[in-house]
Design a binder for these strands. Sequence first.
DNA 1: TAAGAGCGCTTAACCGATTCAACGAGGATC
DNA 2: GATCCTCGTTGAATCGGTTAAGCGCTCTTA
Lengths: 347, 347
Amino acid sequence: MSRRPTIRDVASKLNISAATVSYALSGNGRVSRALAEKVRETAAAMGYVPRHAAMALRTGRSGMIGLVLPNIANPLFPALAQEIGRAARRRGYALLLADSLDEKAGQDLAVAQMVARGVDALIVVPRRGSDLPEAPVPLVIIDTPASAGRGVCSDHRGGGRLVARHLLDLGHRRVLVLAGPENSRVAQERLAGVREVLEACGRAQLTVRHCRYRPEEAAATVADLDQANWTAVAAVSDTLAIGAVNALLARGVDVPREVSVTGFDDLVWASIVRPELTTVRQDLAQIARDAVAMALGEREPGEIVPVELVVRHSTAAARPAPAPAPAPAPASIPETGTARPCEGEPA
Amino acid sequence: MSRRPTIRDVASKLNISAATVSYALSGNGRVSRALAEKVRETAAAMGYVPRHAAMALRTGRSGMIGLVLPNIANPLFPALAQEIGRAARRRGYALLLADSLDEKAGQDLAVAQMVARGVDALIVVPRRGSDLPEAPVPLVIIDTPASAGRGVCSDHRGGGRLVARHLLDLGHRRVLVLAGPENSRVAQERLAGVREVLEACGRAQLTVRHCRYRPEEAAATVADLDQANWTAVAAVSDTLAIGAVNALLARGVDVPREVSVTGFDDLVWASIVRPELTTVRQDLAQIARDAVAMALGEREPGEIVPVELVVRHSTAAARPAPAPAPAPAPASIPETGTARPCEGEPA
DNA sequence: TAAGAGCGCTTAACCGATTCAACGAGGATC
DNA sequence: GATCCTCGTTGAATCGGTTAAGCGCTCTTA
């Protein structure tokens, strides 16, 4: 026979019942050591591979996790997808992938289709401004603390604090924040972190501008503003940071000597563009592991994963202000994301 | 009953048989118009959603296409994955994703697992240097013409020709080729295209260096060489091109005024870095559509998809050589990838 | 020594679709 | 009026696994 062998083929070759083969291979029933071993050998020799469809039908479990992303083209998500795929595969799960193509209906459609396909759990990075999806299977959200009760997320606010403190330590007091789209919960959190620290400082002056996650919009925003009003640009994403850098360089402004720029996410490109970006790195591997663990019910949702400031070459000590001002503070890198009053300031 | 309704639930509500419901919904059997309509309505009203697992078991078709990538982290592949996902979804197929994590065994393992999971077809972007995978289901390879008999690919060689002709037209005669890893079939093709045109020219002088697909390796390679020997760098990937640009800028060499640089693939970042890269764009959407069509047996494999030269700001007319030399040729952009003798050369 | 508990295996039901074969009712054909 | 078709529908087998229940045996335990 040329068909792929079934469990019954293996059974009849050994003159035992199909059930025994099933028990032996799954390790669930009580089968003698010797027989179990022989079954495994025979199955392997015959090239037996279980049909997941049959297992899924009987057990109601498909062994698949659905991953719904807003847009695979955003470079952060492939990295996350890779980590999730890895974590899932380690547990014997496969990854069913869909992106909502940045369309309103796409997300719910994708979720519904995955449910119809019988995924055992869903991991969703929600589209900006969309409602949180519902599904009759465990659903883990990767987003912000606001929805972390349903999943896991980075400490975006803490990241914002790290950035702000870093800039403060470098002596920057007037900061332009490129705050991303107004309806992005993640961007809101990052902005809140920056704001928290800078406002706690008292002396800092904050300019906030919103724009979509496109370098050209960031560039246009920066180009429109009077550069005299700030010495640092804190962008809530590397994409925006690169746009800002380009606009500044085009204007003949040296980065970081005249203006410091920070990003967010540590995309692969952050360390490739010149100057290499100071940015905040999310621990994607940890998020992926947690998300998968939550999806499979091994862990309670609600995790908030710490982020890390990566200092590179797009930030430097603030230049003395045009008005008479003393030397900037030494550039110590804060190790925590906690707000604390700004000390060691220029007098 | 709180379970998801089955086909039998729908049937008993209408006092008809399950078979009729199946025929009505699938449109396969001969069911009267009126009844078919009533069945569809009732099914929808009851929230009936077919179990793919049951369908898969019975029909042997899972409605899933497996996509195996060498490494999702490479920015080219997510874009491709997105297009393939879109094309698949349009036909009612879902996408099962795996990457081989750039490991030797990963690719075959991924293929085997997908087969076990019952995918109806596989689309594989083979890992460099790996053997072409085999599987008991239709398998489409996205790679180079050498394996295009099994799938679809871009006209990498033609892209190489486009780049070479572009540089030739700009007056460049001494070209450094960053040729990527030696075992990359794609890189080999691109190099071959460049070589073909430049050698046909007769007067061109070619330097070829291999390195892995990492900007820092490209940068190191460029930094090691005596820049006097070439006026243009043709990289077989944008990643390498950016490394080359960085190395040149770090050395104080103006790009493109002193040295022109070209990339390959038109990654999103190619138009974001400064200077924006002149590069070759693959038609990923077309490749994706063709690959899916081939996977589903709607089209014969063997397609070679044309590529397109995208001229931006990293290339410019060659400067007059240190030795007495006339003005460079006008920068006409070739519309075809065909080699032709270099005309309008500097005397 | 009778009741009970394990052990290792088998029997058979079951998951929820698809699809073959058959069947009754009408209509057309001869 | 008998025969044959076609139409619309149904019963039942089937896909390939999982798993509850049970069987005959041996070994404890009271």
